[in-house]
């Protein structure tokens, strides 16, 4: 099967410093791949290299079977949509106008008849109908992020590159974003998403690539990648990996010292493990 995104041996150097070293990743249609790793591991740099924003020193990148450099910008924008972390808009455009901008790649193509429908659908799916006529600069960070995500959905491309789409969002909208990504993958799209929340990655990704100091140190199914030793080591933070008793979902928890007031320094008391105090979530209805 032809890969939607195929990056081989990609290295990026900025001012002589190696930011990304020999990263290879292959994403097929119908699949969600999560990029995880600590701050500064090179996740966003890898994504920027895949979008063509970041020049690379070595390696090849193919989008839909054609080298990235051979694509015209306009054609490329019909293949892949990108959500960045920074979603500011310089002038007081309304949310609706911003979502409509996602249709720009399809201008003067037969698909521009779908514009209004695509915009309405994206607005409905991202739950931003309530403020569709408000100006973007007047919105909260989370509302802005959802508007930007709606713009990316409205672009209706077969490849989605999402850089921390859940960072500014509340619990429900985090789930919404990944559910939508899941739906798009089911419909045959390829999704690459940078995530900080390991539980979200475990729940929604088909495959996970773990980055550390500019290298992909592990790649595979969530269960393969998210092991206690590996995560504890890469993040320099002891974790536990638990399997949800009902759903079988993988849950990652940092190991926390018992910290209730007045007991923090009391070594004589037996240490309570994090596990025994966690109320596990109920099975999700979807």
């Amino acid at each position: 099967m032809r890969a939607a995104v195929d990056a081989r041996g990609v290295s990026v150097e900025i001012d002589g410093r190696q930011i990304l070293a020999d990263a290879s990743i292959r994403v097929s249609s119908g699949e969600i791949v999560a990029l995880i790793g600590p701050n500064g591991a090179g996740k966003s740099t890898l994504l920027a290299a895949l979008t063509g924003d970041q020049a690379r020193t070595r390696g090849t990148i193919e989008i839909a079977g054609r080298p990235l450099e051979d694509w015209k910008l306009k054609e490329l924008s019909q293949q892949r949509a990108v959500l960045l972390q920074e979603n500011g808009v310089f002038f007081p455009f309304t949310v609706e106008q911003v979502v409509e901008m996602g249709r720009a790649p399809w201008q003067r193509t037969p698909l521009d008849h779908d514009d209004e429908e695509a915009v309405d659908e994206a607005i409905r799916l991202t739950d931003i109908e309530r403020f569709r006529h408000r100006q973007v600069p007047s919105l909260s960070g989370g509302e802005r992020a959802r508007s930007a995500f709606a713009r990316v959905l409205a672009q209706r491309t077969g490849i989605l590159l999402l850089d921390e789409p859940t960072a500014a969002l509340d619990l429900r909208h985090q789930e919404d974003v990944l559910r939508l990504a899941r739906q798009r993958a089911h419909a045959g799209d390829a999704v690459i998403v940078v995530l900080h929340d390991l539980n979200l990655a475990a729940a929604y990704a088909d495959r996970i690539a773990l980055l550390s100091s500019g290298r992909i140190v592990a790649q595979g199914s969530p269960r393969e990648v998210l092991t206690v030793e590996r995560i504890s080591d890469v993040y320099a933070q002891p974790v536990e990996v638990i399997t949800h008793p009902e759903t079988g979902a993988t849950i990652i928890l940092p190991v926390r010292e018992a910290m209730s007031v007045g007991r923090a320094n009391d070594d004589s008391l037996p240490r309570t493990t994090a596990r025994s105090r966690i109320a596990l979530p109920r099975k999700a209805s979807s």
């Binding site: 979008t51 910008l73 924008s77 019909q78 960045l84 500011g88 310089f90 455009f93 720009a104 790649p105």
Partner: peptide, 20 residues
């Protein structure tokens, strides 16, 4: 003028939408 609208999203986002 239409492309100037896209520029309001920032350079990178404008490029991702096909603007040189």
């Amino acid at each position: 003028s239409r492309r100037l609208d896209l520029l309001s999203l920032g350079e990178r986002s404008a490029r991702h939408l096909g603007v040189n």
